[in-house]
Nucleic acid binder design. Structure first.
Lengths: 357, 357
DNA sequence: CTGAAAGCGCTAACAC
DNA sequence: GTGTTAGCGCTTTCAG
């Protein structure tokens, strides 16, 4: 029941024979290119229908060299952030006749290297990649050297001569941190899912991860006010509830932060869960800020102050840029995508008892 | 800067020539199949490295007929439900050497028909599809007739002789509705994103959409108690905030429901937003139930009573089943995937004033 | 407009 | 173990 042999379906040759024309003409009629008389077109169409012809697009790729496939490498497809971004890419790609081949890396560099290789071997016309790790770029450089169009998404590795679609967080981040500082916060924790094992300090080379811009913004805001920010409060690898739980334990055990910043909505949920479990109140005990905006953030109490970003648009733009590169169209210069601070109720003054500055 | 011609990269023939062996031997060494002496293997490996050889997997597909690509058609990739499912598929597929080609349909039948056609034309080895609409099955039947392995995901069209991976909601749904009835609810609204324009009644042929099982369960529970459920409270097309807003307006204007059931987390968020905007309190004014479980549902107040389902596992299983079909392995019979009711605080007794039964 | 023929890069017989 | 040969299904020249 499961397994009838996969019937070899009709080929252009079959259709041509049935229609009594040459393979070339049949192909032209089927593919609507070149010159074909109406008579031939009709005969071919009919024969194709009768035989249940279904073109083999891979064979076409063999000769044309174009697959009309965009390779997409994301770090965490189950993250609504990427879900939305992929939707943006998908809509734009389909509209231009491209399809998406999607690989997930789970923030793992080896998986990324692999994914990029597989995708190029499958002859994708171009790649959209969220580079996991600034330290490893050979595989991406190789793609560029091969002349395969590449667009970096969500993160940007500067050494790489490849377009990048990122959102500008500087204004929104400064505004948010300013607000934290103004309301008395001196110890601000930042949780990211980035795969990073080395000890962190402000000079660490995070390269173009959006985290970098955000952490940098955080640091700068402190510096501007002549304050010091504790690098020990910047934490990575927050990719599971267990990881977040451990981080929270650790953070709360010493000189605790008075504010938490979550790098994305998944981390935010985990973090809020851990905080609630420990009866830490927001914003009375600690303030809270998250990147990305989803409707649930307005449903919880207090409503979360967030830094929203145009995720769908970013995905759509990445696909558009890639397609432009593929087709040799000059990239139109568009206005930068800006993140915006949406002030709600999760940032408040530092509790006096907890104040340690 | 954008567009250096894509260099034709080295082929097995090139490698073979450089290594001074035949094309066949080179291919064997490169693909690690057949018999190759260590000496040849080494020479080939070296030549491949020197030339920057990168296999063309499409060419391989041409001869073997196998692409090692799984086609995935989902209705709403930005829905975290599918994000998680796709992650499950992706992990399972990668582990078995398959990659995913993902198309989104936005619950649009034409898009689905298209997606299925494109995928088969791209010679995917099999398909995982969330069938949008029970009324249109020719495209899927055609896939089956072609002998291309197909697994239905999340929904099941019964006429189709294709495996399906769905979650059993009957027990969880009965339990939930029982609870609603017990606490006095007689008017239970259900919101789904399904594309459905006809007027709804309890006999409507929703076929295998999970909605069907859920709505059926709802209806049955009422019938068992000798009660009547109003079909006018079952609403579809809840695919945007605007749509949900309109539905809520309409629902609230007549004889209003005392409980709302959201078919997924996206709808739930929209619905909760609309309810909050209208100052409808939960569970004081209306009770609330949602399908799927994400951490934010425990962060809001009241914590949401939900029907959780093993989404990741379902995705993983769909991929596993498809791969089993492809490779002709007999499908292992596994225990059914069960949804579970998680009782939290969003279901309460009907407010006396609002009671209208 | 139409057709014949030459590949795209790889693998699968089939000999040696 | 190794090499030769013949395609997979399609799209191109390049002639007519």
């Amino acid at each position: 029941m499961t397994r009838e042999a996969r019937r070899r379906s009709a080929t252009v040759a079959d259709v041509a024979a049935a229609a009594g024309v040459s393979k070339a003409q049949a192909a032209r009629a089927l593919g609507s290119y070149g010159q074909v008389s109406q008579a031939v077109r009709d005969k071919v169409q009919k024969a194709a229908k009768d035989l249940g012809f279904r073109r083999n697009r891979l064979a076409a790729t063999m000769t044309t060299g174009r697959s009309n496939i965009l390779g997409v490498v994301v770090s965490e497809i189950e993250n609504p952030h990427f879900g939305l971004a992929v939707r943006g890419m998908s809509d734009t790609a389909r509209a231009a006749g491209y399809d998406l081949m999607l690989l997930n890396t789970d923030e793992n560099v080896e998986a990324e290297v692999d994914a990029v290789r597989v995708l190029t071997e499958k002859q994708v016309d171009g790649l959209i990649v969220t580079p996991s790790f600034p330290g490893r770029t050979e595989h991406l450089q190789e793609v560029i050297d091969l002349g395969i169009p590449l667009v970096q998404f969500d993160r940007q590795i500067k050494d790489l001569d490849a377009e990048a679609v990122t959102v500008d967080f500087s204004a929104a981040t400064s505004a948010a941190i300013e607000e934290l500082i103004r309301t008395g916060h001196r110890r601000v924790a930042y949780l990211s899912s980035l795969d990073w094992d080395e000890p962190f300090d402000w000079d660490a080379d995070l390269d173009g991860a959006p985290v970098r811009q955000r952490i940098h913004g955080l640091h700068q805001a402190f510096v501007i006010h002549g304050l010091e920010a504790d690098p020990a409060l910047i934490r990575f690898n927050a990719r599971s509830s267990a990881a977040v739980s451990a981080i929270v334990d650790d953070l709360l055990s010493g000189d605790p932060p008075t504010a938490f910043v979550a790098s994305d909505s998944l981390i935010a949920q985990r973090l809020l869960g851990e905080l609630a479990r420990r009866a830490v109140r927001i914003p009375d005990d600690v303030s809270f800020l998250m990147y990305d905006d989803f409707e649930w953030t307005t449903l919880i109490s207090p409503r979360l102050t967030v830094i929203a970003q145009p995720v769908y648009a970013a995905g759509a733009r990445a696909a558009a840029k890639l397609i432009a590169q593929i087709s040799g169209t000059p990239g139109t210069t568009e206005e930068p995508l800006e993140a915006t601070l949406i002030r709600r109720d999760s940032i408040g003054p530092v509790a006096v008892a907890a104040h340690s500055g």
